[in-house]
Design a protein around this nucleic acid. Structure first.
Lengths: 143, 143
DNA sequence: ATAATATTCGACACTATGTAGAATGTCAAG
DNA sequence: CTTGACATTCTACATAGTGTCGAATATTAT
């Protein structure tokens, strides 16, 4: 490992899927499962100064993207995540990984294992299992 | 799998690390190893109408980001990739995956295997090997 | 010194995101 | 039916990354 300052200047959200606020809002939604804009607003506001409309706008944009559902409740609209965290991570990964694999599958594999080990070593075993079942699946398909 | 059109609207480069042109240029550079702006320009031009300065500008930006090196040759500047494809994919993946893992490691794992299987099934075995050695590495570190 | 080349600058367009006030819509109490 | 409180939508601006170049400037070979 040579950190000879030959490092790529990652600008903030390199390869980012969502902006900060979007992410925070989604996170809040995953917690509450369902909430009005005002509730989400209240949640976000606990950490930073922000206007209600800002949250509403972003919620609206997330809805337009299909990441969030907007349904009319008794007297106010309610929002709920269109995907569970797992599902979402899947969808997103699919996209992102496709792009990275186009560059280099082996390079991506290497960091995948590294990153996973850093983040959640326990997952390593599950990953092995996943690979195994995937291989079997391929076997079957090939007949 | 229900594709009940509940699909996220991925806008063009969701989680994209590089723009189209940047990508094409980098790709050309990886092929040639080293080239003048004009050469890259010629390469890109084979597929689409584009101005020399456009290519130069992007090359410059890539250099600023630290993704390509700019060195003075005999009579013109030459550019070369600062990383091999593998290295680059590693660097980038690291960043991108970090973000996705924060959302859901297991979700990411699932698609990782899927995406890899689609893209390059042969890599599956290597991945298994990678995981093994990673686990051993962790073992050692823990003593 | 001059013309031919190479390199750099400055600009504009377009998109995504964060930000939020203004305008408009809704509905229940008076 | 009018008014006020609250909800929702619209419009708009700022910033940043990328694609796109022409114009200005610098460099070189003749």
């Amino acid at each position: 490992m040579d950190n000879t300052d030959k490092v790529i200047k990652f600008t903030d959200g390199y390869g980012k899927v969502l902006g900060h606020l979007e992410q925070d809002i989604l996170e809040a939604l995953w917690l509450k499962q369902e909430a009005s804009g005002k509730e989400i607003f209240a949640e976000i506001k606990r950490n930073r100064e922000i206007a209600l409309t800002t949250v509403l706008t972003v919620l609206e944009r997330l809805a337009k993207k299909g990441i969030v559902r907007k349904v009319k409740g008794e007297s106010v609209y309610l929002f709920r995540p269109a995907y569970t965290k797992d599902e979402f991570a899947r969808e997103v990964s699919q996209e992102v990984l496709k792009g990275i694999f186009e560059i280099s599958a082996s390079g991506a594999c290497a960091s995948f294992v590294d990153a996973l080990a850093d983040n959640d070593p326990m997952e390593l075993d599950k990953l092995t299992a996943l690979i195994e079942s995937k291989k079997k699946e391929i076997e079957r398909k090939r007949g």
